[in-house]
């Protein structure tokens, strides 16, 4: 799969841009959190496209954003149904 570039993104309509980014980000997220990959990717797609492009080029920044998203998700779930041990 060829790398996604800023010029490729700019040539696509806004809605398609998020789709293109999601298709690249999802498999990377899936390797870290397979069960939550869809939701995490959905959250990440709310970030600016330029930032998402940077994350695709920098595994470290992607990883930290994914961990952030997981923490937010867990807090969200904890509010809806607080039932945990520890």
């Amino acid at each position: 799969q060829e790398p996604l570039t800023a010029s490729m993104l700019a040539a696509a309509p806004p809605q398609e841009q998020k789709q293109m980014l999601g298709e690249r980000i999802y498999p990377l997220v899936h390797r870290m959190h397979s069960a939550l990959a869809g939701k995490i990717t959905g959250m990440l797609l709310e970030i600016d496209n330029s930032e998402l492009l940077h994350m695709l080029e920098s595994p470290e920044s992607l990883h930290s954003k994914v961990e952030e998203a997981v923490a937010v998700l867990q807090a969200h779930h904890a509010k809806e149904g607080s039932h945990k041990s520890g």
Partner: peptide
């Protein structure tokens, strides 16, 4: 009954057109 139809976060599925937050129908 509380509002259990909260769909946040929107879930991304490969191959499915992404609608983002717009997929929340009234």
């Amino acid at each position: 009954s509380n509002g259990s139809s909260i769909t946040w976060p929107p879930e991304f599925h490969p191959g499915v057109p992404w609608k983002g937050l717009q997929n929340i129908d009234p």
